[in-house]
Simulated assay, not measured.
Amino acid sequence: MIAHVVTDTAVMFRRCARHTLRSRDTLIISLLMPVLVMMLFTYVFGGAIDVGGPYLDYVVPGIMLLCTGFGSSITATSVSTDMTRGSIDRFRTLPMFKQAVLAGHVAEGVVRNLAAIAIALAVALVLGYRPHTGVVGWLSAFALITLFVLAISWIAVALGLVAKNPEAAGGLTYAIMFIPYISSAFVQTSTMPGWLRGFAEYQPATPVVDTVRGLLDATDTGHDAAVAVFWCVGLAVIGFAGASAVFGRLAHR
């Protein structure tokens, strides 16, 4: 049974990956937009923002989360496109793991987002980013980022299923793309007005980015790590449950 699920998901992953590779303009934008935003904040806004150290070192973890936000729009739009074109209806009639098509979209989204993060990180290293961690820190940061990407990808799939059309699906993900901006990703939350600081400090992006920053800087992450993992697991469960519920209703129409 497990081998059947893995095989069907791998087939759907390859299908989604081929579609992404064929849409070269979308792929290029998703891979390069985070780099452009990083350079914008570093060289345009960075000089005016005091974070107690090099701004590039501060902003790189936030860019990693921003990559996920950009990528979620592509995932949601792809799922909605499958819905509107009837592809998912056809897949449900085949002798395969029914949710493999959703898992394939998630797997492709995770790989694509991690590729975008790797490109942004490589450019940051060229620009002078110098993390001070070791192998354990890198692996821990990678694990947390992957968990966050997985969670957001499931949320994006759920949004793609409920959207009326691909354009609406892309619009629904704007909130995901906007959340990192209202967090500690680009500025310290202590500089925000009180009414906004409360939201910034207790939404999921802040503990995740603070933990990644602490892991890469080899500093104490405190309780942020546990909160970050809790948020990522919670969002993944919500996204998976939501997508499964909507998919199940569609199967019984």
Rank of each mutant, 00 (worst) to 15 (best):
P34F: 00
P34A: 01
H4N: 04
D8Y: 02
A17C: 04
D8C: 07
R18Y: 05
I28E: 03
I28K: 06
L31N: 06
T9G: 00
I2N: 08
L21A: 04
L21V: 04
M12P: 05
T20W: 03
S23V: 05
R15M: 02
A10T: 13
L27M: 13
C16L: 00
P34Q: 00
F13R: 01
M33A: 15
L32T: 09
D25R: 11
R15W: 09
A10F: 13
V6K: 01
L21T: 10
A10I: 11
L27D: 05
I29M: 14
A3S: 12
T20K: 02
M12T: 12
T26A: 15
R14V: 14
C16D: 05
V11F: 15
R14I: 11
M12S: 15
L32G: 09
T26F: 03
L31Q: 06
P34D: 01
M33N: 07
H19T: 11
V5C: 01
R24T: 09
C16T: 04
D8N: 14
L32F: 15
D25Y: 07
M12Q: 15
L31P: 06
H19D: 11
R18S: 12
A3Q: 10
P34L: 03
A17G: 00
P34E: 01
M1V: 07
L27A: 13
H4V: 02
D25G: 01
L27I: 05
C16Y: 12
S23M: 06
L21S: 06
T20L: 12
D8G: 01
V5A: 11
H4D: 14
S23E: 13
C16E: 14
L21N: 04
